[in-house]
Simulated scan of single mutants.
Amino acid sequence: MKLFSLLFLFFMFAVSAQAQIDSDSRKKSFTMPVIEDPVETPRTISEKPKALEDYSGFSVPKTTRDLSLPEKEFSMFPQEQFGNPGELYTKQLDKNISDLKLSPKEVEQRNGSTTDQYFGDFKSKAKFINVVYRDHGYVDGDIIQVRVNDDVIHPRVFLTGSFKGFKLDLKKGFNKIDFVALNQGESGPNTAEFRVVDDTGHVVSHNQWNLATGVKATIIIVKE
């Protein structure tokens, strides 16, 4: 009976103590402290960065810190200055042309003679002659006119690669034959080869011409 009484008293004391703790906890408020995130302050980098060339395994081009402009402008022709840029190219072009040094004959062959050509006079006892001609260069449309003693006998003759011509009965004295270049074809100049053959098959004259438009080549046959 006594043991039961003691257990009952201990139980009541425990209940009373727990009630006191709950009462005290209600009276006091518990506030959770706010923990602020630490703010990192910027660090001062005292160590100098490594130069690019210090890193192994990389090939870095070397640069220069001198960004100043050159004192003189670039020129293909150093130590020469011109007020007008066109003079630079004109002077160089004139120099290139002067270096060619073409002979008068070479100039004539390339551009055609601008003066009338005289191939001489020849004596003959023949009753007649055969005059033939052809384009001795590239057949490019060269056209000539044929005159005898200033009379037009063939107004337009297209030169081909084969000989063609006419028979001329010789008169006593001078028989002048003119070949007039009417054009220079597609490639120029007017190029031709001619032959004069007498009635016995003898070649009286044989020559070539390179003529500019409007220029003529002349040969004279003198009948004895």
Rank of each mutant, 00 (worst) to 15 (best):
125 K>F: 01
135 D>F: 05
211 L>E: 04
108 E>K: 10
221 I>N: 00
211 L>N: 04
188 G>T: 11
108 E>R: 11
156 R>T: 07
182 L>C: 15
14 A>N: 03
220 I>Y: 00
137 G>Y: 09
46 S>I: 06
13 F>Y: 06
177 I>R: 00
142 D>G: 06
23 S>E: 10
91 K>A: 08
173 G>A: 14
200 T>I: 08
124 S>Y: 01
96 N>D: 09
177 I>D: 06
22 D>S: 14
34 V>G: 02
51 A>V: 04
26 R>D: 09
187 S>L: 08
189 P>D: 01
119 F>N: 06
146 V>Y: 05
148 V>T: 11
145 Q>S: 09
156 R>M: 10
141 G>S: 04
59 S>C: 04
79 Q>K: 13
114 T>Y: 10
115 T>S: 10
21 I>S: 12
47 E>R: 15
99 D>S: 13
52 L>R: 06
107 V>A: 01
68 S>F: 12
65 R>G: 07
133 Y>C: 00
58 F>W: 11
58 F>N: 05
189 P>C: 03
111 N>T: 09
75 S>F: 02
131 V>E: 00
208 Q>E: 11
152 V>H: 06
34 V>D: 06
110 R>A: 05
156 R>N: 12
100 L>Q: 05
109 Q>V: 07
165 G>A: 05
85 P>D: 03
16 S>W: 07
156 R>F: 11
18 Q>Y: 13
52 L>P: 02
113 S>W: 03
106 E>R: 03
74 F>W: 13
69 L>E: 15
74 F>E: 13
26 R>L: 09
199 D>G: 02
191 T>V: 15
134 R>M: 05
165 G>E: 01
27 K>T: 08
115 T>I: 05
29 S>K: 13
129 I>M: 00
96 N>C: 14
72 K>M: 02
149 N>A: 08
130 N>H: 06
184 Q>S: 15
130 N>Q: 06
16 S>D: 07
88 L>N: 07
202 H>M: 14
22 D>Y: 13
12 M>Q: 07
118 Y>T: 09
61 P>A: 15
126 A>I: 03
81 Q>S: 12
141 G>P: 01
58 F>A: 09
57 G>Y: 04
39 V>Y: 01
6 L>I: 04
79 Q>D: 07
31 T>I: 14
121 D>K: 00
1 M>G: 11
175 N>F: 13
143 I>E: 09
194 F>K: 02
215 V>G: 05
10 F>A: 11
193 E>P: 06
101 K>V: 14
99 D>T: 13
181 A>P: 10
161 G>V: 03
140 D>M: 03
38 P>W: 13
21 I>M: 10
22 D>N: 15
204 V>Q: 02
146 V>S: 01
108 E>V: 11
46 S>Y: 08
190 N>T: 04
69 L>T: 14
112 G>M: 05
51 A>S: 10
118 Y>I: 08
18 Q>N: 10
50 K>S: 10
5 S>E: 09
112 G>H: 05
145 Q>N: 04
101 K>E: 12
154 H>A: 08
165 G>R: 01
18 Q>D: 10
117 Q>L: 12
198 D>G: 02
94 D>G: 02
183 N>P: 15
212 A>W: 12
207 N>R: 12
8 F>P: 01
62 K>S: 14
13 F>W: 07
84 N>A: 08
172 K>Q: 13
82 F>Q: 01
127 K>V: 01
35 I>N: 06
198 D>K: 00
224 E>Y: 03
75 S>A: 02
159 L>Y: 09
